[in-house]
Nucleic acid binder design. Structure first.
Lengths: 112, 112
DNA sequence: AGCAACTTTCTACACGCCGTAGAAGTGTGG
DNA sequence: CCACACTTCTACGGCGTGTAGAAAGTTGCT
C-alpha cells in the first residue's frame, strides 16, 4: 500500500526531482498552487508515515527527502499490481505484446 | 482509475475465473463470506459503473461478466502506473533488473 | 530574560470511495 | 392476482486525502 493522492504525488515529484532535501516552505513555493504551509506539512507527515519520505529532524526547518527513487517506487507499484494476479508471466506476456516496437527493442537490449 | 476494493476484487476474481456470466446470487454463494445479496448487487452495480463488468439485463436474474480479462485489466493497471512517470524505459529497466532469472528468461522468450 | 518571527504539531472538517445492508419497488410463474 | 425472487434506492460508518486554523514549540535578537 503505497498509492498516492494527487497532492501527495505532486510533493513526491518535487522531492524526486530535487537533488537536495527540501523544507516544507520550499515545497510549498515550488508547488505553484496556493496552499497553506500547514497543508504541505500535513502531507509531508503522511508521506513520512507511509515510509516514502525521510525527514531530517535535526535541522531547523526540517528537511524532507524521498526514501526511494521514483524508479524504485514505481517498480514497487508494478510488483504490487503484478502481485494481484496468479500468473505474472501471463500478464507480462500480454504487456509486452502491447508495447511499441521501439520499447520492445529497448527491452531486448536491457535483457541482454 | 480502475483500482479495486477488496470485495470488488473478490467479485472480479470470480467473474474472471468463470466461463459463464454469473448472477448476483451465484456470486454471493461463491464468495464464501456471509454477505447479503444486496451487498453483492451493490458491488456489481459499482463495477458496472466503473466499466469493469457488463450485465445482461435481458435475462432474469441479470447475469454479470467481466468486460476485460484479468490479464487485460492488469496490463491496463501496469500502464496506469507507468503513466505516472516521465521515463517509462528507466522504470522498465529497473523492473527487469529486479525479476528472477527464470522470469527474465521467459521475457526473452516472449520478446522473440 | 523576554519578545517576535518562524516552524511544527494537533485537531478538525468535507468529500469521495468502499463495505455493508434494509426498505421499497418491480416483474414472473403458478 | 399473488407469493416469491430479483432489483433499485437509500443510507450509514470507516478510511484516505485535501485542506487549514489554533496552539505549541524553537530560535535569534536586544
Amino acid at each position: 500500500m503505497a498509492s498516492l493522492g494527487e497532492l501527495e504525488r505532486s510533493v513526491m515529484t518535487l522531492l524526486w526531482d530535487s537533488a537536495q532535501p527540501l523544507s516544507a516552505n520550499e515545497v510549498c513555493e515550488l508547488l505553484d498552487e496556493d496552499l497553506a504551509v500547514t497543508t504541505v506539512l500535513t502531507v509531508l507527515a503522511r508521506l513520512e508515515k507511509k515510509g516514502m519520505v525521510q525527514r531530517e529532524r535535526a535541522s531547523r526547518p526540517h528537511r524532507y527527502a524521498s526514501v526511494a527513487s521514483r524508479e524504485e517506487h514505481t517498480v514497487e507499484m508494478l510488483n504490487e499490481v503484478l502481485g494481484t494476479v496468479p500468473d505474472r508471466e501471463a500478464v507480462l506476456a500480454r504487456f509486452i505484446g502491447s508495447v511499441s516496437d521501439s520499447e520492445a527493442a529497448a527491452l531486448r537490449r536491457i535483457l541482454g
